[in-house]
Simulated assay, not measured.
Amino acid sequence: MPALSILDLVPVRTGQTSAEAVASSLTLAARADELGMRRYWFAEHHNMPAVASTTPPVLIAAAAARTSRIRVGSGGVMLPNHAPLVVAEQFAALEALAPGRVDLGLGRAPGSDPVITQLLRQSGTTSDVDRFPDHVRDIRSLVSRDGASLRFTSGGTYEVTATPAASSVPEVWLLGSSDYSAQLAATLGLPYVFANHFSGEGLERALDLYRTGFVPNEENPAPRTFLTANAVVADTVEEADARALPQARMMARLRTGRPLTALESVEEAAGAEKTDRLAAPMWDALRAKWFVGTAADVTADLAAFAERWGVDEVMISPVAGSDRDEPMDRPDARLRTLELLVQRAPVAA
């Protein structure tokens, strides 16, 4: 069994407040820590009724305060939305709060629609997507113990650090789902994560480009990667399928341009699917890429998946939907996925 990690979008379901959704996710983070999982990362998405993970650094700080061992981080910070120095300062502060267990995952996608992207990027040249490689390099320098040096055209330098006296630094990862991100991670000698949970298309080519083009450095002498995957585990296959349906319907809305809503309950999704058949056209394709079933089935499939792609870690996004009467401030369905997996095959952190 590969090491298991968690990617959390802080899902918001029908009738649930943002406060309840965040409380639910922090409970899940604490339990992931107890279960021996390796990492807990928060995504960055904006203006989506079903997603409350808009500010990874805030959520990471809260998760760090409720855990003691698990690595906490971003999956990822969408760098063009933010000034590099601000990102560096935030994660230097997080590293001071939880020394030795902070990951800074950086992405290039906007994490929202064009209108929100423009609102987020009203920050001059820092929002220039074409300068993404430069900004990644800047952040690596800024969070290092030595900081960065600015050289003036008139002569002289100006020293900049993300924090006054760092004793350790966050680990920087590059995230993506394209050839571009894989090649950039290889060129910069950074650890890399392919966003397999989102589409899964192009995985083989991205990993090959990353591994064959990797430029070793002192921090990372060899390529390092793991994969993400959506997972739903339940006591029966039928229950797992039912709990996967709300997320499948959400993915269908995203891909067909339909209005987004809060995540449906299991009962709402089942009732609606009988009439609108929203998820039906893509269900078989999603089911083939997701890990849905009993603990025995999913652990075997995850082990085969990790072996197939030569990774020792899989970061699952636990997308199990909740029944209508389950508590709003607890992640019962998602928690069940984690606990069933670990009970079936305990993992080493």
Rank of each mutant, 00 (worst) to 15 (best):
R205A: 11
A32R: 08
F152C: 11
I139F: 00
G257F: 10
T225W: 02
S317R: 13
A165I: 04
P164A: 15
A272W: 08
A296F: 07
D138K: 09
T294M: 12
D33C: 11
A349D: 10
D33N: 10
F132L: 09
V86Y: 06
P110Y: 01
L59V: 06
R308S: 08
A29K: 09
L341E: 01
G310D: 13
V102D: 00
A231M: 06
T225C: 14
T117G: 09
I316F: 07
A162N: 03
I316G: 05
D179I: 00
P331Q: 06
F305E: 05
A345W: 02
L106P: 00
L59A: 05
M250P: 00
Y40Q: 07
G200E: 05
D297M: 10
G293H: 08
A231L: 07
V10C: 13
A186Q: 06
A65I: 04
L104R: 06
E264G: 10
A186H: 01
A182P: 03
A306F: 04
L340Y: 03
I60N: 09
M37E: 05
D329W: 07
D301C: 05
D312V: 05
D325S: 13
T14I: 12
A229E: 02
S74Y: 05
L286W: 15
A63L: 09
P57M: 02
D179A: 14
L254K: 10
L174C: 03
I6S: 04
P133K: 11
T67P: 11
P216L: 07
L278G: 02
H197Q: 14
K274V: 14
E268V: 03
V347Y: 07
T294S: 13
D33Q: 09
L85G: 03
E89C: 07
R344Q: 15
A269W: 08
S167T: 14
T161G: 08
L209K: 00
L335V: 08
R108Q: 05
T256N: 14
E34C: 08
A165F: 06
H197C: 10
L227S: 02
D146Y: 06
P133M: 11
R211K: 12
V292Y: 10
S177T: 11
T126Y: 08
N217C: 10
L207K: 06
E159I: 12
W283I: 04
V10K: 05
A244K: 04
I116A: 14
V233R: 03
P11M: 07
L174R: 01
S68D: 11
D134P: 03
L184E: 01
M315K: 02
R211E: 13
R131M: 09
Q118K: 14
P114Q: 12
A83E: 04
L278K: 04
A21S: 13
H45K: 07
V136Y: 00
S112M: 10
V143F: 00
T236G: 12
P84W: 01
A29H: 06
D130A: 15
A348L: 14
A96E: 15
A3D: 14
K289H: 11
D312M: 05
W290V: 01
D241W: 06
L338E: 08
A195L: 12
A295I: 03
L188M: 12
R101K: 11
